[in-house]
């Protein structure tokens, strides 16, 4: 009976109890950090989302589901789709941002991976360099690039998309450009790691077995790169859902996303309970979308 409690752990004779104690010692700093700065604020947020806004914007601990009703579009003046539209638009923007980043990343990764070993690091550095600059500054940089005097805006004006002499922002297009340029490296870097160690014999086997280009990609390349691709997709999709700097600057009031809406509630509108309710909505939406993605990628992986 006593013997069962003694075990060998990586060459060390010890007891289960002392292992457990040691594990707790190592785990507790991280756990504490997460508890204090993530779990507790999260719980507070849940509580706040059921509270009421006072007449002067202060919190009143009076239980209500009014915030969620409002998010669903019910108000004193009847039903409106505004908030749901913003939520839906946020999912769409995050989805398209992720999709475009993935579509751009594959050729980019294959391009870099097929360079000579020494120049590969140069290319990778070029991908990373934008990270050295503050996000807000990068968003402002797009103002310059999309300004009326620049070739892009001129081209768009001559094709009749925008009025002569106006910039290419703020609009949906500018938001997408800003978002993709912001998130591209999050897909490219993990994906590159798997493209670099790709087993090319599978590609050759697929070609040898009469596969079309699409079939070569879906059967020989995609399954091999799926784990790293998933990392990139999650790293892009989740922050893209809550992004507010880029849509704020490049989309303005014309293209509001849920991130801006939340920022507004906690800021100018001083409506913390409603802001908390929107945050909850965002979190639930993100989790649902990731769950759908996980299901789909499992189908591709078969097992």
């Amino acid at each position: 009976m006593k013997n069962r409690l003694i075990m060998i752990w990586y060459g060390e004779l010890t007891t289960r109890k002392s292992l457990l104690r040691r594990g707790l010692v190592f785990l507790s700093p991280g756990m504490l950090w997460l508890m204090v700065f993530l779990v507790l604020p999260g719980l507070v947020l849940v509580a706040v989302s059921f509270a009421t806004r006072g007449a002067y914007g202060q919190l009143e601990w009076e239980y209500t589901i009014e915030n969620y009703r409002r998010l669903m579009g019910f108000s004193l003046f009847g039903w409106t789709s505004d908030y749901l539209l913003i939520l839906w638009r946020s999912v769409l923007v995050a989805f398209i941002t992720t999709l475009v980043s993935v579509i751009l990343s594959y050729p980019l990764c294959f391009f870099i991976a097929t360079r000579k070993e020494r120049s590969r690091y140069l290319w990778l550095t070029l991908v990373i360099i934008p990270f050295w600059t503050n996000m807000v500054i990068r968003a402002y940089a797009w103002f310059l690039i999309l300004a009326p005097e620049m070739p892009f805006a001129r081209l768009a004006a001559s094709l009749g998309f925008i009025a002569e002499g106006s910039p290419l922002y703020p609009n949906a297009f500018a938001v997408y450009i800003g978002m993709v340029s912001m998130f591209l490296p999050f897909v490219t870097l993990p994906l590159y790691a798997s493209v670099e160690k790709l087993d090319w014999s599978l590609v050759e086997a697929a070609q040898d077995l009469y596969a079309s280009r699409i079939r070569v990609f879906s059967q020989a390349i995609l399954p091999q790169t799926l784990p790293e691709l998933s990392v990139g997709v999650i790293l892009t999709f989740v922050p893209a859902m809550g992004m507010f700097v880029v849509p704020d600057l490049l989309g303005g009031a014309k293209y509001m996303l849920v991130g801006n809406l939340i920022q507004q509630q906690f800021g100018a509108s001083r409506d913390w309970p409603f802001g908390a309710a929107i945050s909850m909505g965002l979190m639930v939406l993100t989790m649902i979308t990731l769950q759908i993605y996980r299901r789909r990628s499992k189908e591709t992986d078969h097992r």
């Binding site: 014999s201 050759e204 086997a205 070609q207 040898d208 077995l209 079309s212 059967q219 020989a220 399954p223």
Partner: peptide, 19 residues
């Protein structure tokens, strides 16, 4: 390669692991 009536047994076999 995709148009040739030639097929190969690869050294590493190159079987598709997900199939």
């Amino acid at each position: 390669a995709t148009k040739r009536q030639v097929n190969t047994v690869f050294q590493s076999y190159a079987l598709f692991p997900h199939l």
